Simulated scan of single mutants.
Amino acid sequence: MSQQSQGDALDWAVPIMRAGYAGRGLTYLAIAGISLWAIWSGGSAQGTQSALSRLQGTPGGGIVLGLIAIGLIAYCVWRVLDAIFDLEAYGTDGKAIVARIGMVVTGLIHAALGIAAFTILYGTGTGGSGISGLTRKALDLPMGQFLVGAGAVATIGAGLYYLKKAVTGDYQDNLQANHFTVNWNWVLKAGVAAQGVIVTIVGGFFLVAALTYDASEAGGMDKVFNWLSSQPFGQTIVVVICLGLLAFALFCFVNAAYRIVPRASSEDVETLAKRVKSKVSD
């Protein structure tokens, strides 16, 4: 089968990918937007679950919440399909296998958020993250501290990987080059960096929870915001991070529109990385 016919055979996965990234973008747009509004109103930044719960009470919020839930489930499906069929051509060496396993884990995390959004939408749950409770259950398992610690190290690694992508611009390899992606590349870079900071801090919380055998030390984005707020110039840092999350939301929307899927895309698609390199050489 030719490269082109193989790509045509896998085109069915692309709409799922686009829906997934759109849902992910809506999620971060809601978190950052609601958090910035809360800060402006004299409150504090909101974690994922709190932001989604607040969204339910706004005009049209139920529709957006439904789109977020569907999108996050689609993102999970996309990541699982990506890992199984190697749609982004990672390969089968050790590094590639780790990356593909990471895709599945990332997908499952987003599926959990999507399910939480559904429970908020239909009033069957409060949207509480329950991260401490889940961490306590994990710690109580045989070798629980090791498992939580390993998860923490993996999360920190994922955060550092985001930061590496922001510095090196590796994310540009998966985006089409066009007027928008070229001119807004600096915003995309800032968004990837902001996500890297948050994921790394979350991993740090889980590592402390594992080392101290204290599940209350674990937490998600709400704990990140609370911790950052307690630092010198904390509120300013939180505002900067929220602006970074707006940029990451844009990054997700750009991926929804312009992400290249190597095994389902034409070979003549110019990548953003290639365009940026050509501009630098000029």
Rank of each mutant, 00 (worst) to 15 (best):
W227T: 15
I260Q: 06
G60H: 04
A190V: 14
G204T: 02
I97F: 11
L55A: 07
Y75L: 14
N178L: 02
K165S: 15
V238G: 02
Q49W: 12
T271D: 06
Q56D: 15
W186I: 13
G144F: 04
Q231P: 09
V197N: 10
N183C: 11
T58P: 12
Q176E: 14
S266F: 09
A273Y: 10
T119A: 08
D268P: 07
A264M: 01
D82I: 06
I198G: 04
G123Q: 04
N178A: 03
L10Y: 08
G42C: 01
A32M: 05
S53L: 11
F253W: 01
I84W: 10
V202G: 00
Y161A: 12
F248W: 05
Y162M: 10
V261D: 06
I68D: 01
A38G: 09
V254E: 04
A138T: 01
I97Y: 11
S278A: 14
A74D: 02
I63E: 01
A190C: 08
T48Q: 13
L250R: 07
S35C: 03
I39H: 08
D173A: 14
I84S: 01
L188F: 10
L141A: 08
N255E: 15
L188G: 09
G66Q: 00
V197S: 07
K165D: 15
I156G: 05
Q172C: 12
V64M: 04
A194G: 02
S216N: 11
Y90H: 14
M221K: 08
V208H: 09
I241D: 00
K274Q: 15
I63L: 08
L134S: 11
F180C: 14
K95N: 14
S44L: 09
A96S: 10
T124F: 10
S35R: 00
G123L: 05
A166H: 08
A152F: 05
C76N: 07
F225C: 00
G62Q: 10
D93S: 04
T106L: 15
Y75S: 08
A273H: 12
K95Y: 10
L243M: 05
W37D: 13
L160H: 07
S281I: 14
T58N: 11
V238N: 00
P15T: 02
G244M: 01
D214Q: 03
V64C: 03
G203C: 02
L67H: 02
T119Q: 09
V105Y: 04
T124H: 07
A9P: 11
G203K: 02
G130S: 01
G123S: 05
A152W: 05
I156H: 07
V197M: 13
F248K: 03
K189D: 10
F206C: 06
A9K: 10
T168H: 02
M103R: 15
W40A: 14
G151H: 02
S2M: 04
S53V: 07
L29D: 03
F146I: 14
P232L: 07
F251R: 08
R263P: 07
G169H: 03
I63F: 06
N183G: 12
Q49Y: 12
P15Y: 00
S50L: 12
I156A: 02
C76V: 05
L26S: 04
D222L: 06
F206S: 07
L141F: 01
A249D: 03
